[in-house]
Nucleic acid binder design. Structure first.
Lengths: 248, 248
DNA sequence: TCAAAAGTGTTTATTATACACCCATGA
DNA sequence: TCATGGGTGTATAATAAACACTTTTGA
Protein backbone atom coordinates (compact mmCIF):
# COMPACT_ATOMS: atom_id res chain seq x y z
CA UNK A 1 0.00 0.00 0.00
CA UNK A 2 1.36 3.43 -0.86
CA UNK A 3 1.94 6.02 1.80
CA UNK A 4 -0.89 8.11 0.52
CA UNK A 5 -3.28 5.20 0.65
CA UNK A 6 -2.33 4.69 4.27
CA UNK A 7 -3.03 8.28 5.08
CA UNK A 8 -6.31 8.09 3.14
CA UNK A 9 -7.36 5.22 5.35
CA UNK A 10 -6.32 6.99 8.52
CA UNK A 11 -8.14 10.05 7.27
CA UNK A 12 -11.43 8.23 6.79
CA UNK A 13 -11.19 6.66 10.19
CA UNK A 14 -10.48 9.98 11.84
CA UNK A 15 -13.39 11.70 10.10
CA UNK A 16 -15.67 9.11 11.57
CA UNK A 17 -14.39 8.98 15.12
CA UNK A 18 -12.44 12.12 16.02
CA UNK A 19 -13.05 15.78 16.75
CA UNK A 20 -12.02 17.91 13.80
CA UNK A 21 -9.45 20.69 14.28
CA UNK A 22 -8.32 19.33 17.62
CA UNK A 23 -5.02 17.52 18.03
CA UNK A 24 -2.40 16.59 20.57
CA UNK A 25 1.38 16.64 20.41
CA UNK A 26 3.55 14.98 23.00
CA UNK A 27 7.13 15.52 24.02
CA UNK A 28 8.13 12.27 25.71
CA UNK A 29 11.24 12.66 27.80
CA UNK A 30 13.53 9.92 28.97
CA UNK A 31 16.88 9.75 30.71
CA UNK A 32 19.62 7.43 29.57
CA UNK A 33 23.39 7.31 29.74
CA UNK A 34 23.71 10.74 31.24
CA UNK A 35 21.59 12.47 28.69
CA UNK A 36 18.05 13.64 28.18
CA UNK A 37 16.24 11.92 25.34
CA UNK A 38 13.03 12.65 23.54
CA UNK A 39 10.95 10.16 21.62
CA UNK A 40 10.65 11.09 17.95
CA UNK A 41 9.18 9.38 14.98
CA UNK A 42 9.47 9.51 11.27
CA UNK A 43 6.30 9.21 9.28
CA UNK A 44 6.25 7.34 6.06
CA UNK A 45 6.73 9.72 3.19
CA UNK A 46 8.40 12.42 5.26
CA UNK A 47 12.07 13.14 5.55
CA UNK A 48 11.82 15.07 8.80
CA UNK A 49 11.12 13.75 12.25
CA UNK A 50 8.15 14.69 14.40
CA UNK A 51 6.70 14.44 17.87
CA UNK A 52 4.23 11.66 18.49
CA UNK A 53 0.71 12.97 18.40
CA UNK A 54 -2.83 12.19 17.48
CA UNK A 55 -6.44 13.17 17.63
CA UNK A 56 -9.20 13.19 20.19
CA UNK A 57 -12.14 10.86 19.89
CA UNK A 58 -15.51 12.50 19.88
CA UNK A 59 -16.33 11.14 23.30
CA UNK A 60 -12.95 11.12 24.92
CA UNK A 61 -11.51 13.49 27.48
CA UNK A 62 -8.51 15.43 26.25
CA UNK A 63 -6.17 13.96 28.86
CA UNK A 64 -7.46 10.48 28.12
CA UNK A 65 -6.58 10.97 24.47
CA UNK A 66 -3.03 11.90 25.39
CA UNK A 67 -2.76 8.75 27.50
CA UNK A 68 -4.13 6.60 24.72
CA UNK A 69 -1.73 8.05 22.17
CA UNK A 70 1.24 7.48 24.42
CA UNK A 71 0.19 4.02 25.42
CA UNK A 72 0.03 3.03 21.77
CA UNK A 73 3.41 4.54 21.15
CA UNK A 74 5.29 3.23 24.17
CA UNK A 75 3.31 0.30 25.51
CA UNK A 76 3.31 1.96 28.90
CA UNK A 77 0.33 3.03 30.94
CA UNK A 78 0.42 5.21 34.02
CA UNK A 79 2.59 7.69 32.26
CA UNK A 80 3.19 11.02 33.91
CA UNK A 81 1.65 13.68 31.68
CA UNK A 82 1.52 17.42 31.95
CA UNK A 83 -0.23 19.80 29.64
CA UNK A 84 1.94 22.82 28.95
CA UNK A 85 0.69 24.94 26.07
CA UNK A 86 -1.66 25.19 23.09
CA UNK A 87 -0.36 25.76 19.61
CA UNK A 88 -2.98 27.48 17.54
CA UNK A 89 -1.29 29.46 14.80
CA UNK A 90 -2.79 29.22 11.36
CA UNK A 91 -0.66 27.56 8.76
CA UNK A 92 1.19 25.39 11.26
CA UNK A 93 1.33 22.47 8.88
CA UNK A 94 0.74 24.20 5.58
CA UNK A 95 4.23 24.06 4.22
CA UNK A 96 4.83 20.50 5.29
CA UNK A 97 1.67 19.07 3.76
CA UNK A 98 1.56 21.25 0.66
CA UNK A 99 1.53 18.30 -1.72
CA UNK A 100 -1.30 16.41 0.00
CA UNK A 101 -4.81 16.28 -1.43
CA UNK A 102 -7.14 18.81 0.15
CA UNK A 103 -9.80 16.38 1.28
CA UNK A 104 -7.54 14.56 3.73
CA UNK A 105 -8.24 14.91 7.43
CA UNK A 106 -4.64 15.81 8.08
CA UNK A 107 -4.92 18.91 5.91
CA UNK A 108 -7.30 20.60 8.32
CA UNK A 109 -6.19 23.39 10.51
CA UNK A 110 -5.42 21.94 13.95
CA UNK A 111 -5.35 23.52 17.37
CA UNK A 112 -2.86 21.30 19.13
CA UNK A 113 -2.47 20.87 22.84
CA UNK A 114 1.10 20.16 23.88
CA UNK A 115 1.78 17.62 26.60
CA UNK A 116 5.07 16.56 28.01
CA UNK A 117 5.51 13.07 29.36
CA UNK A 118 8.14 11.78 31.74
CA UNK A 119 8.92 8.09 31.37
CA UNK A 120 11.36 5.53 32.62
CA UNK A 121 13.59 4.95 29.62
CA UNK A 122 14.23 1.37 30.59
CA UNK A 123 10.61 0.27 30.53
CA UNK A 124 9.53 1.80 27.24
CA UNK A 125 9.41 0.04 23.91
CA UNK A 126 9.07 2.55 21.08
CA UNK A 127 6.39 1.31 18.72
CA UNK A 128 6.48 1.73 14.98
CA UNK A 129 2.95 1.68 13.66
CA UNK A 130 1.39 1.60 10.22
CA UNK A 131 1.97 5.21 9.36
CA UNK A 132 5.45 5.61 10.83
CA UNK A 133 8.64 3.98 9.70
CA UNK A 134 10.85 4.81 12.65
CA UNK A 135 10.27 5.59 16.32
CA UNK A 136 13.40 6.31 18.31
CA UNK A 137 14.92 8.09 21.25
CA UNK A 138 16.96 11.09 20.22
CA UNK A 139 19.37 13.05 22.33
CA UNK A 140 18.07 16.48 23.28
CA UNK A 141 21.43 17.94 22.33
CA UNK A 142 21.57 16.26 18.99
CA UNK A 143 18.18 16.54 17.36
CA UNK A 144 17.37 15.84 13.74
CA UNK A 145 15.33 18.28 11.65
CA UNK A 146 11.78 18.46 12.94
CA UNK A 147 8.64 18.91 10.87
CA UNK A 148 6.16 21.78 11.14
CA UNK A 149 6.46 23.72 14.40
CA UNK A 150 7.64 20.72 16.40
CA UNK A 151 10.93 22.40 17.16
CA UNK A 152 9.00 25.19 18.90
CA UNK A 153 6.78 22.75 20.72
CA UNK A 154 9.73 20.77 21.99
CA UNK A 155 11.54 23.88 23.11
CA UNK A 156 8.45 25.07 24.88
CA UNK A 157 8.09 21.69 26.59
CA UNK A 158 11.64 21.86 27.88
CA UNK A 159 11.09 25.33 29.26
CA UNK A 160 7.94 24.17 31.02
CA UNK A 161 9.76 21.15 32.43
CA UNK A 162 12.50 23.40 33.76
CA UNK A 163 9.99 25.72 35.39
CA UNK A 164 8.20 22.83 37.03
CA UNK A 165 11.27 21.04 38.28
CA UNK A 166 10.60 21.82 41.92
CA UNK A 167 6.92 20.99 41.69
CA UNK A 168 6.95 17.81 39.58
CA UNK A 169 8.15 14.36 40.55
CA UNK A 170 10.68 14.33 37.75
CA UNK A 171 13.03 11.95 39.53
CA UNK A 172 10.27 9.48 40.16
CA UNK A 173 9.18 9.39 36.54
CA UNK A 174 12.39 9.78 34.61
CA UNK A 175 14.58 7.41 36.58
CA UNK A 176 14.27 3.66 37.01
CA UNK A 177 12.79 2.47 40.29
CA UNK A 178 16.27 2.18 41.74
CA UNK A 179 18.88 4.77 40.89
CA UNK A 180 22.08 6.23 42.21
CA UNK A 181 22.86 9.65 43.58
CA UNK A 182 25.15 10.56 40.66
CA UNK A 183 22.35 9.67 38.27
CA UNK A 184 19.88 11.83 40.12
CA UNK A 185 22.29 14.73 40.18
CA UNK A 186 23.05 14.36 36.51
CA UNK A 187 19.35 14.47 35.73
CA UNK A 188 18.91 17.70 37.64
CA UNK A 189 21.93 19.17 35.94
CA UNK A 190 20.57 18.30 32.52
CA UNK A 191 17.19 19.81 33.14
CA UNK A 192 18.51 22.92 34.82
CA UNK A 193 21.30 23.23 32.31
CA UNK A 194 24.07 23.77 34.83
CA UNK A 195 26.53 21.97 37.05
CA UNK A 196 25.54 21.48 40.64
CA UNK A 197 27.81 21.09 43.63
CA UNK A 198 28.01 17.42 44.50
CA UNK A 199 28.29 17.68 48.27
CA UNK A 200 25.52 20.21 48.61
CA UNK A 201 23.26 18.35 46.24
CA UNK A 202 23.62 15.18 48.25
CA UNK A 203 23.03 16.92 51.53
CA UNK A 204 19.98 18.67 50.16
CA UNK A 205 18.43 15.55 48.69
CA UNK A 206 18.92 13.64 51.90
CA UNK A 207 17.52 16.62 53.74
CA UNK A 208 14.22 16.27 51.91
CA UNK A 209 13.93 12.83 53.44
CA UNK A 210 12.40 11.30 50.34
CA UNK A 211 15.06 8.71 49.49
CA UNK A 212 15.09 5.11 50.61
CA UNK A 213 18.18 2.95 50.36
CA UNK A 214 17.73 -0.17 48.28
CA UNK A 215 19.56 -3.45 48.72
CA UNK A 216 20.70 -3.97 45.20
CA UNK A 217 23.75 -5.82 44.04
CA UNK A 218 25.72 -3.18 42.23
CA UNK A 219 27.25 -3.79 38.84
CA UNK A 220 30.91 -4.65 38.91
CA UNK A 221 33.10 -1.58 38.82
CA UNK A 222 36.75 -0.88 39.29
CA UNK A 223 35.90 1.47 42.09
CA UNK A 224 33.44 1.86 44.90
CA UNK A 225 29.97 0.84 43.73
CA UNK A 226 27.23 3.43 44.16
CA UNK A 227 24.34 3.06 46.58
CA UNK A 228 20.97 2.50 45.01
CA UNK A 229 17.97 4.50 46.13
CA UNK A 230 14.28 4.64 45.44
CA UNK A 231 11.75 7.30 46.34
CA UNK A 232 9.43 7.20 49.28
CA UNK A 233 6.52 8.18 47.08
CA UNK A 234 4.31 9.50 49.80
CA UNK A 235 7.00 11.69 51.26
CA UNK A 236 8.06 12.78 47.79
CA UNK A 237 4.60 13.94 46.84
CA UNK A 238 4.20 15.64 50.13
CA UNK A 239 7.46 17.53 49.72
CA UNK A 240 6.46 18.60 46.22
CA UNK A 241 3.36 20.33 47.49
CA UNK A 242 5.56 22.92 49.06
CA UNK A 243 8.03 22.80 46.19
CA UNK A 244 11.48 21.28 46.57
CA UNK A 245 12.94 24.71 47.18
CA UNK A 246 13.90 26.68 44.17
CA UNK A 247 17.21 28.01 42.88
CA UNK A 248 20.50 26.32 42.62
CA UNK B 1 -36.50 38.72 19.64
CA UNK B 2 -36.45 35.82 22.07
CA UNK B 3 -33.27 34.60 23.66
CA UNK B 4 -33.34 31.44 21.65
CA UNK B 5 -33.74 33.35 18.41
CA UNK B 6 -30.65 35.32 19.33
CA UNK B 7 -28.65 32.19 19.95
CA UNK B 8 -29.98 30.68 16.71
CA UNK B 9 -28.62 33.68 14.86
CA UNK B 10 -25.26 33.51 16.61
CA UNK B 11 -25.20 29.80 15.90
CA UNK B 12 -25.66 30.24 12.16
CA UNK B 13 -22.98 32.87 12.03
CA UNK B 14 -20.53 30.71 13.95
CA UNK B 15 -21.15 27.68 11.74
CA UNK B 16 -20.18 29.80 8.78
CA UNK B 17 -17.10 31.52 10.13
CA UNK B 18 -15.63 29.65 13.09
CA UNK B 19 -13.72 26.48 13.83
CA UNK B 20 -16.02 23.89 15.37
CA UNK B 21 -15.15 22.38 18.75
CA UNK B 22 -12.62 25.09 19.53
CA UNK B 23 -13.35 27.85 22.00
CA UNK B 24 -11.69 30.36 24.28
CA UNK B 25 -12.46 31.43 27.82
CA UNK B 26 -10.93 34.47 29.42
CA UNK B 27 -10.39 35.44 33.01
CA UNK B 28 -9.97 39.21 32.90
CA UNK B 29 -8.41 40.54 36.07
CA UNK B 30 -8.53 44.09 37.31
CA UNK B 31 -7.51 45.87 40.48
CA UNK B 32 -9.75 48.40 42.18
CA UNK B 33 -10.27 49.71 45.65
CA UNK B 34 -7.87 47.29 47.24
CA UNK B 35 -9.38 44.23 45.72
CA UNK B 36 -8.91 41.92 42.79
CA UNK B 37 -11.79 41.90 40.34
CA UNK B 38 -12.72 39.64 37.51
CA UNK B 39 -14.93 40.55 34.59
CA UNK B 40 -18.03 38.38 34.44
CA UNK B 41 -21.10 38.41 32.32
CA UNK B 42 -24.59 37.11 32.43
CA UNK B 43 -25.98 35.70 29.23
CA UNK B 44 -29.58 36.23 28.37
CA UNK B 45 -31.63 33.30 29.47
CA UNK B 46 -29.14 32.13 32.11
CA UNK B 47 -29.28 32.73 35.79
CA UNK B 48 -25.60 32.05 36.41
CA UNK B 49 -22.64 34.19 35.48
CA UNK B 50 -19.84 33.19 33.15
CA UNK B 51 -16.41 34.14 31.91
CA UNK B 52 -16.27 36.07 28.65
CA UNK B 53 -15.36 33.80 25.81
CA UNK B 54 -15.85 33.07 22.19
CA UNK B 55 -14.83 31.14 19.15
CA UNK B 56 -11.94 31.14 16.72
CA UNK B 57 -12.44 32.21 13.15
CA UNK B 58 -11.37 29.71 10.57
CA UNK B 59 -8.46 31.85 9.52
CA UNK B 60 -7.51 33.45 12.77
CA UNK B 61 -4.63 32.70 15.08
CA UNK B 62 -5.69 31.47 18.49
CA UNK B 63 -4.09 34.40 20.30
CA UNK B 64 -5.64 36.82 17.86
CA UNK B 65 -9.06 35.40 18.65
CA UNK B 66 -8.51 35.98 22.34
CA UNK B 67 -7.54 39.60 21.61
CA UNK B 68 -10.57 40.11 19.44
CA UNK B 69 -12.91 38.69 22.03
CA UNK B 70 -11.48 40.89 24.74
CA UNK B 71 -11.41 43.97 22.61
CA UNK B 72 -15.12 43.53 21.90
CA UNK B 73 -15.82 43.05 25.57
CA UNK B 74 -13.69 45.83 27.03
CA UNK B 75 -12.98 48.28 24.24
CA UNK B 76 -9.30 47.98 25.00
CA UNK B 77 -6.55 46.81 22.69
CA UNK B 78 -3.01 45.96 23.71
CA UNK B 79 -4.29 43.82 26.51
CA UNK B 80 -1.82 41.60 28.32
CA UNK B 81 -2.86 38.01 27.68
CA UNK B 82 -1.43 34.76 28.87
CA UNK B 83 -2.59 31.30 27.92
CA UNK B 84 -2.69 29.06 30.95
CA UNK B 85 -4.51 25.79 30.35
CA UNK B 86 -6.83 23.82 28.09
CA UNK B 87 -10.14 22.52 29.32
CA UNK B 88 -11.08 19.48 27.34
CA UNK B 89 -13.33 17.29 29.47
CA UNK B 90 -16.37 15.86 27.77
CA UNK B 91 -19.68 17.10 29.04
CA UNK B 92 -18.32 20.45 30.19
CA UNK B 93 -21.48 22.26 29.17
CA UNK B 94 -23.97 19.40 29.04
CA UNK B 95 -25.86 20.14 32.18
CA UNK B 96 -26.05 23.86 31.56
CA UNK B 97 -27.38 23.62 28.03
CA UNK B 98 -29.60 20.60 28.50
CA UNK B 99 -32.72 22.38 27.33
CA UNK B 100 -31.21 23.76 24.12
CA UNK B 101 -32.02 22.31 20.71
CA UNK B 102 -29.35 19.89 19.49
CA UNK B 103 -28.60 21.62 16.23
CA UNK B 104 -27.23 24.76 17.85
CA UNK B 105 -23.54 25.50 17.50
CA UNK B 106 -23.26 26.05 21.22
CA UNK B 107 -24.31 22.45 21.92
CA UNK B 108 -21.12 21.06 20.42
CA UNK B 109 -18.38 19.69 22.55
CA UNK B 110 -15.74 22.39 22.96
CA UNK B 111 -12.06 22.20 23.75
CA UNK B 112 -11.52 25.54 25.40
CA UNK B 113 -8.23 27.34 25.83
CA UNK B 114 -8.09 29.41 28.97
CA UNK B 115 -6.44 32.81 28.89
CA UNK B 116 -5.99 35.25 31.67
CA UNK B 117 -5.86 38.94 30.94
CA UNK B 118 -4.47 41.72 33.09
CA UNK B 119 -6.05 45.09 32.50
CA UNK B 120 -6.06 48.55 33.96
CA UNK B 121 -9.43 48.75 35.69
CA UNK B 122 -9.69 52.46 35.09
CA UNK B 123 -9.50 52.29 31.31
CA UNK B 124 -11.94 49.48 30.67
CA UNK B 125 -15.59 49.85 29.77
CA UNK B 126 -17.42 46.54 30.16
CA UNK B 127 -19.56 46.00 27.10
CA UNK B 128 -22.96 44.38 27.13
CA UNK B 129 -23.63 42.87 23.72
CA UNK B 130 -26.63 41.28 22.06
CA UNK B 131 -26.42 37.95 23.81
CA UNK B 132 -25.50 39.18 27.28
CA UNK B 133 -27.59 41.20 29.64
CA UNK B 134 -24.94 42.17 32.15
CA UNK B 135 -21.17 42.56 32.09
CA UNK B 136 -19.62 43.58 35.37
CA UNK B 137 -16.58 43.49 37.56
CA UNK B 138 -16.96 41.10 40.45
CA UNK B 139 -14.80 40.83 43.50
CA UNK B 140 -12.65 37.71 43.55
CA UNK B 141 -13.65 37.13 47.15
CA UNK B 142 -17.34 37.54 46.51
CA UNK B 143 -18.19 35.66 43.35
CA UNK B 144 -21.66 34.78 42.15
CA UNK B 145 -22.54 31.26 40.97
CA UNK B 146 -20.67 30.45 37.78
CA UNK B 147 -21.94 28.37 34.87
CA UNK B 148 -20.39 25.14 33.57
CA UNK B 149 -16.80 24.64 34.70
CA UNK B 150 -16.05 28.35 34.88
CA UNK B 151 -15.37 28.14 38.57
CA UNK B 152 -12.55 25.67 37.85
CA UNK B 153 -11.23 27.78 35.03
CA UNK B 154 -11.14 30.88 37.17
CA UNK B 155 -9.45 29.07 40.00
CA UNK B 156 -6.90 27.66 37.62
CA UNK B 157 -6.27 31.14 36.20
CA UNK B 158 -5.61 32.52 39.65
CA UNK B 159 -3.16 29.75 40.42
CA UNK B 160 -1.33 30.42 37.17
CA UNK B 161 -1.25 34.12 37.88
CA UNK B 162 0.22 33.44 41.29
CA UNK B 163 2.89 31.16 39.86
CA UNK B 164 3.85 33.74 37.27
CA UNK B 165 3.96 36.69 39.59
CA UNK B 166 7.73 37.02 39.44
CA UNK B 167 7.89 36.55 35.70
CA UNK B 168 4.96 38.67 34.49
CA UNK B 169 4.62 42.42 34.48
CA UNK B 170 1.54 42.29 36.66
CA UNK B 171 2.09 45.73 38.14
CA UNK B 172 2.41 47.29 34.73
CA UNK B 173 -0.82 45.80 33.48
CA UNK B 174 -3.07 45.78 36.51
CA UNK B 175 -2.30 49.25 37.83
CA UNK B 176 -2.95 52.61 36.25
CA UNK B 177 0.02 54.34 34.65
CA UNK B 178 0.72 56.15 37.88
CA UNK B 179 0.24 54.37 41.18
CA UNK B 180 1.35 54.51 44.78
CA UNK B 181 3.53 52.18 46.78
CA UNK B 182 0.67 51.08 49.06
CA UNK B 183 -1.37 50.20 45.97
CA UNK B 184 1.45 48.13 44.55
CA UNK B 185 1.94 46.34 47.82
CA UNK B 186 -1.75 45.65 48.17
CA UNK B 187 -1.80 44.15 44.69
CA UNK B 188 1.04 41.79 45.53
CA UNK B 189 -0.65 40.84 48.76
CA UNK B 190 -3.88 40.03 46.98
CA UNK B 191 -2.26 37.85 44.38
CA UNK B 192 0.01 36.06 46.80
CA UNK B 193 -2.74 35.78 49.34
CA UNK B 194 -0.70 36.99 52.28
CA UNK B 195 0.40 40.12 54.09
CA UNK B 196 3.80 41.47 53.23
CA UNK B 197 6.09 43.52 55.42
CA UNK B 198 5.78 47.14 54.40
CA UNK B 199 9.35 48.26 54.99
CA UNK B 200 10.91 45.27 53.30
CA UNK B 201 8.53 45.45 50.39
CA UNK B 202 9.39 49.07 49.76
CA UNK B 203 13.11 48.46 50.02
CA UNK B 204 12.90 45.52 47.69
CA UNK B 205 10.86 47.30 45.05
CA UNK B 206 13.21 50.24 45.05
CA UNK B 207 16.07 47.79 44.91
CA UNK B 208 14.84 46.46 41.57
CA UNK B 209 15.30 49.96 40.19
CA UNK B 210 12.20 49.78 38.03
CA UNK B 211 10.15 52.62 39.55
CA UNK B 212 10.13 56.22 38.41
CA UNK B 213 8.69 59.00 40.53
CA UNK B 214 5.91 60.93 38.86
CA UNK B 215 5.05 64.58 39.45
CA UNK B 216 1.38 64.20 40.08
CA UNK B 217 -0.80 66.39 42.20
CA UNK B 218 -2.07 64.01 44.84
CA UNK B 219 -5.69 63.89 45.79
CA UNK B 220 -6.53 65.82 48.93
CA UNK B 221 -6.10 63.76 52.04
CA UNK B 222 -6.08 64.44 55.70
CA UNK B 223 -2.61 63.01 55.92
CA UNK B 224 0.60 62.84 53.97
CA UNK B 225 -0.22 62.23 50.31
CA UNK B 226 1.46 59.24 48.69
CA UNK B 227 4.13 59.52 46.04
CA UNK B 228 3.06 58.44 42.59
CA UNK B 229 5.24 56.11 40.57
CA UNK B 230 5.28 54.63 37.13
CA UNK B 231 7.36 51.77 35.76
CA UNK B 232 10.48 52.15 33.74
CA UNK B 233 9.22 49.67 31.22
CA UNK B 234 12.56 48.73 29.78
CA UNK B 235 14.11 48.10 33.17
CA UNK B 236 10.98 46.29 34.32
CA UNK B 237 11.04 43.87 31.41
CA UNK B 238 14.71 43.33 31.85
CA UNK B 239 14.31 42.53 35.53
CA UNK B 240 11.51 40.08 34.73
CA UNK B 241 13.77 38.02 32.51
CA UNK B 242 15.64 36.94 35.58
CA UNK B 243 12.48 36.84 37.65
CA UNK B 244 11.76 39.36 40.37
CA UNK B 245 13.13 36.98 42.98
CA UNK B 246 10.71 34.55 44.44
CA UNK B 247 9.35 34.05 47.93
CA UNK B 248 8.15 36.55 50.38
C1' DT C 1 -2.18 66.46 66.80
C1' DC C 2 -3.49 62.72 64.11
C1' DA C 3 -3.35 59.37 60.34
C1' DA C 4 -1.23 57.62 56.49
C1' DA C 5 2.94 57.46 53.91
C1' DA C 6 7.95 57.26 53.33
C1' DG C 7 12.40 55.92 54.49
C1' DT C 8 16.17 53.59 57.19
C1' DG C 9 18.72 51.03 60.60
C1' DT C 10 19.38 46.76 62.64
C1' DT C 11 19.03 41.92 64.05
C1' DT C 12 18.15 37.15 63.35
C1' DA C 13 17.40 33.10 60.84
C1' DT C 14 17.78 30.65 56.73
C1' DT C 15 19.84 29.40 52.46
C1' DA C 16 23.07 29.15 48.76
C1' DT C 17 27.70 28.41 47.45
C1' DA C 18 32.14 27.09 47.91
C1' DC C 19 36.14 24.72 49.48
C1' DA C 20 38.21 21.04 51.87
C1' DC C 21 38.69 17.22 53.84
C1' DC C 22 37.60 12.36 55.26
C1' DC C 23 36.58 7.36 54.19
C1' DA C 24 34.95 3.19 51.30
C1' DT C 25 35.34 0.00 47.66
C1' DG C 26 36.97 -3.07 44.03
C1' DA C 27 39.91 -4.04 40.28
C1' DT D 1 47.08 2.77 43.98
C1' DC D 2 43.61 4.78 41.34
C1' DA D 3 39.02 6.20 40.15
C1' DT D 4 34.63 6.91 41.70
C1' DG D 5 31.21 7.31 45.23
C1' DG D 6 29.67 8.67 49.90
C1' DG D 7 29.70 11.72 53.72
C1' DT D 8 30.71 15.74 56.58
C1' DG D 9 32.69 20.22 58.49
C1' DT D 10 32.92 24.80 57.95
C1' DA D 11 33.11 29.64 56.29
C1' DT D 12 31.14 33.24 53.58
C1' DA D 13 27.68 35.72 51.21
C1' DA D 14 23.06 36.63 50.17
C1' DT D 15 18.39 36.81 51.36
C1' DA D 16 14.16 36.72 54.00
C1' DA D 17 11.73 38.24 57.85
C1' DA D 18 10.91 40.87 61.74
C1' DC D 19 11.11 44.93 64.71
C1' DA D 20 11.77 49.67 65.55
C1' DC D 21 12.34 54.27 64.93
C1' DT D 22 12.24 58.70 62.35
C1' DT D 23 10.35 61.97 59.24
C1' DT D 24 6.88 64.03 56.13
C1' DT D 25 2.53 65.96 54.98
C1' DG D 26 -2.16 68.06 55.08
C1' DA D 27 -6.32 68.65 57.41
Amino acid sequence: MSHLDLFERASELAYRSCLPHVSIDCAVFGFHESSLKVLLLKMKGFDKWGLPGGYVKKDENLDAAAYRILKARTGASNIYLEQFRVFGQTGRSEHELAHWPEHLWQKQRFISTGYYALVDYTTIIPVVDRISEQCEWKDIDDLPDLMMDHQDILHSALTALRRNIHYSPIGLNLLPKAFTMPQLQKLYELILGKKLHRGNFQRKMHGFDILVKEDIVPVKTSHRPPIYYSFDIEKYNNALKYGLRQEW
